[in-house]
Simulated scan of single mutants.
Amino acid sequence: MNSLAFFKHQEARDLFAKIDYALKDGVHIQNSIHQASFFRFIEENEESLKDFYEEFYGVYLEHGGETINKYYYLEFGYNTRGNIPLEHRYFFPNEYVIVAFMVYKIIFIDGYVDLSSVSKIQKIIRQDYEDLKPGLYRALAKAKREKTTKINDENVDKVVLDAFKEFAKIGWITLDEDLFDTLPAFERIAKIYSDYINNLEDWLKGDKVI
Rank of each mutant, 00 (worst) to 15 (best):
Y90S: 10
N83E: 14
F91W: 15
G65F: 01
G58Q: 07
Y112I: 03
Y129C: 08
V156G: 00
A163C: 07
F7N: 11
S3W: 04
L115G: 04
S194N: 11
A190V: 04
F91G: 12
D20M: 08
I109L: 14
A190E: 08
N45K: 01
E66I: 10
I125K: 00
E201N: 06
V27K: 02
L86A: 14
P184S: 04
F180N: 01
E11S: 09
A163K: 02
G206S: 10
G77S: 11
E62N: 13
N69G: 15
I173M: 05
T80L: 08
D162G: 07
E130Y: 12
F92G: 03
F186M: 05
L86W: 14
R126L: 09
N31D: 12
P184C: 04
D202L: 13
I151R: 00
G82N: 05
Y196P: 00
Q30G: 06
Q122R: 11
D128P: 06
D207L: 14
V113N: 15
E166H: 02
Y129W: 11
V209Y: 12
E75S: 15
N2V: 03
W203V: 03
L49P: 04
H34Y: 12
I170N: 08
I125A: 00
I68N: 15
K142T: 12
P184N: 06
K144P: 02
E55P: 02
L49Q: 07
R81I: 05
I33G: 15
E62T: 09
K144D: 11
L4C: 06
K144E: 13
T182W: 04
I197S: 00
I124N: 01
A22F: 03
T149E: 15
A141I: 04
Y129Q: 05
K147Y: 14
G58A: 10
Q10N: 13
I84E: 05
D114T: 14
K169S: 06
D114C: 14
Y21D: 11
Y193G: 03
V159S: 07
F108V: 06
E11Q: 13
H28N: 09
N31M: 05
E11L: 08
N198M: 12
L183N: 01
K18G: 06
S116A: 15
K165Y: 07
Y196H: 11
A190N: 11
F180I: 02
G26P: 01
E11H: 13
M102P: 00
E130W: 09
H28K: 13
G26Q: 04
T182V: 13
I84Q: 05
E43Y: 11
I68C: 13
N31R: 10
A22R: 03
Y96I: 08
S119D: 15
M1C: 11
P85Q: 09
D131T: 11
Y78P: 06
E87P: 04
E75A: 15
F76L: 10
D162T: 07
I210S: 09
Q30I: 01
V103A: 11
K70V: 03
V118R: 03
L4P: 04
A22S: 08
P134G: 05
S116F: 09
G135R: 03
N2C: 06
M102H: 04
T148Y: 14
G171Y: 01
F38K: 02
K147E: 14
I170G: 05
D131S: 13
E177W: 07
K147V: 13
Q122S: 11
T182P: 01
D110S: 12
